[in-house]
Nucleic acid binder design. Structure first.
Lengths: 200, 200, 200, 200
DNA sequence: CATGAATGAGTATTCATTCAT
DNA sequence: TATGAATGAATACTCATTCAT
């Protein structure tokens, strides 16, 4: 009697994913307070009520989006990257290439970066403990930097501060991707050069 | 009556200033949509109604704040700076010093920088006309960069793109000033070095 | 097709009955406004949509339930009771016994009593016409009381007021049956004694 | 600068009281689920928003009403009554008189009785512990009954069951007061006679 | 027929703004 | 002028009903 049960579950999962995906961009562009459920639903192309079938509240939807930005493939790939038996310089080039490629091709990636960074600025302590995106991404980057400084390819300075700066710039260009069309993004080489010494 | 009339005006002006000053910080931290009049009034330490004695609406208050960030002393000083008969390198050092000093000492300055940059990202076209902070500041900075490139002290690249990047980093640390306490800001030298070639 | 047609009708009737039966209890406990279709369906053990296969709307379902409480066997039996050639005292004992037995054994009976009485309190005039449960039951009871007063077995007082009081008490214990487990119901003798004079 | 501070508090208290008072009747007549905030506000004669100045939610308002029905003067008076050095018969007459007088004159009193009794029937355990209205009122009444049975003026039976029945009848007439106009209430003598033996 | 996902009209709640004091 | 209580338009959320499968 049920509607085919498996297919049902499938449909639900698809709808849920679509909502999460489309909301990410919308929240990143408009902020939490600036996002009206009615507009969001229209933007996604569903009824207002449908949102509440899948999420208890605007806040739950937002939190889930935030959580997702941390569990994404990107992070996992980065974790793998840091453990590869290659030079820090190569790692940083790969990292920069990966970031800029994603940023160029995928607005949602930009949205995730923007949301994540903004979250680190929020008071309400979503990311209050050091167990979040910040630590994850920043620590992985810090390790690359430390390796690079040993290898002599990375500029001097406190590794964490450099990582912080590096990701700050990524945030900057994520915002540009989201909000402007005027300026082209910087090249992956320019991004990498933030950490790497100029080649003599 | 006539005697106290001036004093009255004075008091009005003071109250108005206080509201503008305190609101700047609050808007920068919470955004326009995220700012409730009730919270804002509490934060300033006045009644909700009082806000409406001085400003017609939330939007008017916000616009006024935005306008003020453009007419501030800082900008004027920068305009003067660009016309001084000194090397671009010195100008850039002075600019960086001025920015970082303000950023360190004055949260409201950070708030102004943040608001201004955010405004450039907004759709609503507050800054759509090229007569705004962006153009002003960016053009002044662009001129310095062009001068510096001629003098050989500034790195290569499109001047406007460099200016854009320079102010992007300033924005980044303005946000850090507003939202975190953890990381120290970068030094004025580090900021200047974004534009300047490393000294051999 | 023609062969299964009957069976089909039969199944339909069964399903319909189950919905009516289970809903009666649910409405009685939660009221019309307090009953959500989603909860009701879950309680019955069917899908929400299924309800609408059998009933046009929540209101139609409710009305049907209300109507059914009037056409039930109980009423018919009571109408027969009043015309039996026995003493009012015996009739009242039989009535009381019938009521209390039903009340004890059948929660749905309690639900019917509760719903009916509540309906008399509603403004919306379901029971506005005097062609309803109230009049039916009350008039039958009134007749018994009048007969009993003639026979000297029933206490003095306005017959309709006594009937009203009698059924009020039944309503009271219907509620207890529906909502509590603590107190035992009164005995059928106690119920009968509301109308009957104490035996000297 | 504040509006006169005391007067302000006063106004708030008055408004709050008015809302509580007027809502009691409305909730008693329509039930919690059947009460719309928009209608309730209209009925009270205030804006919808005003309700939320004084109460966080519909539920909080309802709970407060319920709490108030327990702390009312009536209960306190009854507690005093039970300790007076008079016969149980007199106490029961006084009790009945007090109840019926209130019921006749004050619809809000009827509303309180109705709400309280209904609450005892609710699942959600507002009154789950025996520390509520039920216990309070019922225990006081039980004591009178026990005293009366010793004195020989009160009918036989489990005292708590009798108290339960007595208040059930009060509930019944509270409902009549709230919802009908047809039948006059029973007299205070009739109410007292529920507990008292017929005088020989 | 039976289902439960989707929907929007309806309801609860918030918040910028007004206004009497 | 300064206030905060009052307000309703705007916004979040719910729920009876529909409909594709």
């Amino acid at each position: 009697m049920p509607k085919s049960s498996e297919r049902c579950q499938e449909i639900r999962e698809e709808a849920r994913s679509k909502i999460l995906h489309d909301s990410t961009l919308y929240f990143a562009k408009n902020g939490f307070a600036g996002t009206k459920i009615s507009d969001l639903a229209k933007h996604i192309g569903i009824g207002q009520g449908t949102l509440y079938v899948y999420f208890k509240s605007k806040e739950e939807l937002f939190n889930e989006i935030y959580t997702l930005t941390n569990n994404s493939e990107d992070i996992k790939n980065l974790k793998i990257l840091v453990h590869l038996p290659i030079s820090a310089k190569k790692k940083i080039y790969k990292l920069s290439k990966s970031i800029m490629t994603n940023l160029m091709q995928d607005e949602t990636y930009a949205a995730k970066v923007a949301l994540n960074t903004q979250m680190m600025f929020e008071k309400k302590g979503f990311a209050s403990e050091e167990t979040t995106y910040q630590s994850e991404l920043y620590q992985v980057t810090e390790k690359m930097i430390i390796q690079g400084q040993k290898e002599g390819s990375v500029v001097n300075g406190m590794p964490m501060k450099l990582a912080d700066y590096f990701w700050g710039v990524v945030y900057l260009y994520a915002l540009k991707k989201l909000f402007t069309t005027k300026y082209e993004l910087i090249s992956e080489e320019d991004l990498a050069r933030i950490l790497l010494k100029d080649e003599a």
